[in-house]
Amino acid sequence: MSNNQSNQSLAFCFSGSSPISNKAVNHTVASAYFSAVFSALGLSSNLFALVVLVKAFHQTKSRSRSSFLLFLCGLVVTDFMGLLVTGTIVVSFHVTHFDWMLLDPNCHFCNFMGMSMVFYGLCPLLLGATMAVERFVGINWPFARSANISKSRACYMVFGVWVSAGFISLLPLLGLGSYHIQVPGSWCFLNISHMPLDMAFCLIFSLVGLLSLAVSFVLNTVSVVTLLRVCCGQDSSRRRRDYELEMMVQLILIMVIASICWCPLLVFIAQTVFSEGKLNVPRLLLGIRFATWNQILDPWVYILFRRSVLKRVYPRMDWSRGSIASLYPSFRKLTRSSLGGTSRLGETKLDGQISQETKQEDEDPFPEQNAPAHS
């Protein structure tokens, strides 16, 4: 009776994988150093980026920038925890060569890692789409946004992304799909097969990720076009470049990195479940390695593409501070002509918001004079 139960418990997380031989383990022993260095680099980068963001958050007075920094902090924390959880398991396997079937006969540990892979994989993509929406609203309807988006609401939105990704990662435990151990035996991931339930879960994971990237691309493109129109319009000589440009540069780079790192894996999963061929293990491993680079490259966007760094790289550019509200004389004319019936009270409130935002100066957490000369 116990043997039957053991076979049944092993079936759902080991049946889709070929047995992990000692030869495979020995072949990947060199990966212990690579995985350890890879994880250490990612963890230290995210930790340093978190320090940068926390200092910037405490010193900023702009409401729009505070909300954006909260989203970035959520992304950094997610990347850090993802590397910590998955990296610890992978490095432990390469160092100890533990037997999954003996260590985890009921597949609880495998399910945990599979859930972690899905959760920490979807969170950056969903957060990138959420930040794209936030910037789109902030640039195209800044005054409506300033009345509706607060720091607490930004925190709720980050928490909502975590809950959504967590719910998707729990679907295999609810009967939709399953998590299986993957070659070379150091990790668990969703079972990419042609079984209806596994196929449905694979498509959910792939399509949610691709849809997030598509939303980010469309909204960021519109936001960039809007900023270019404002900065290069008739009143461009009187307008001030500010942290809105900094935030858009960071967000565009986050989107580009996520697209390059995740599209190969997401497209590969969708193609595999729709085709009748066998799983291409080398392509799966290559896609996973590409996706993991996202967690390492993301923090360097916040570290390198700050105003203090950009001012040193491009000293001729005008990096004066201010709010995007100061860029809006033509937008206000357009608003008056399109809405016509705008009340004087509304215009007074609008001008008050403009002057208040323009007067607020954001102090960079790492000013130029404090930067080391050799950096």
Rank of each mutant, 00 (worst) to 15 (best):
M1P: 11
N3E: 15
N4G: 07
Q5T: 08
N7K: 12
S9D: 12
A11H: 15
F12I: 11
S18A: 15
P19L: 10
P19Q: 10
P19W: 12
N22I: 08
N22H: 04
A24Q: 13
V29K: 11
A30L: 14
S31T: 12
S31K: 06
V37I: 15
A40F: 14
S45H: 11
L47V: 13
F48N: 00
L50R: 04
F57S: 11
Q59A: 12
S62H: 14
R65V: 13
R65Y: 14
L72D: 00
C73I: 13
L75R: 00
V77I: 15
M81K: 09
T88F: 05
F93D: 00
T96W: 04
T96E: 08
T96Y: 03
H97K: 07
H97Q: 12
H97N: 12
P105D: 06
F109G: 01
F109S: 04
F109A: 04
N111S: 10
G114I: 07
M115V: 08
V118A: 13
Y120L: 01
L122E: 12
L125Q: 00
G128A: 03
T130M: 02
V133L: 05
V137M: 10
V137Q: 04
G138R: 00
W141G: 04
W141F: 15
A144L: 13
A147I: 01
I149Y: 07
I149G: 00
R153H: 13
A154D: 02
F159V: 07
G160E: 03
G160L: 03
V161P: 03
V163M: 11
S169W: 08
L170T: 14
L174F: 12
L176Y: 08
Y179C: 05
Q182I: 14
V183C: 04
V183N: 10
P184E: 05
C188S: 15
C188Y: 10
F189S: 07
L190A: 12
I192V: 10
L197I: 01
L197M: 08
V208D: 00
S223P: 04
L227M: 15
L227A: 10
R229N: 14
V230W: 09
C232A: 13
C232F: 15
Q234S: 14
R240N: 12
D242I: 03
M248F: 02
Q250A: 10
V256C: 05
I257L: 04
A258N: 12
S259C: 13
I260H: 02
T272Q: 07
V273F: 03
F274E: 02
F274T: 05
S275I: 03
S275Q: 02
V281H: 05
R283C: 09
F290E: 01
F290W: 13
Q295W: 06
W300Q: 03
I303N: 00
F305D: 01
S308R: 06
S320Q: 09
L327K: 06
Y328P: 00
R332Q: 13
S337N: 15
L339D: 06
L345F: 06
E347R: 11
D351V: 10
Q356Y: 10
Q356F: 09
T358L: 06
T358D: 11
K359L: 11
D362W: 14
E363Y: 10
Q369K: 05
P372K: 04
S375R: 05
S375M: 09
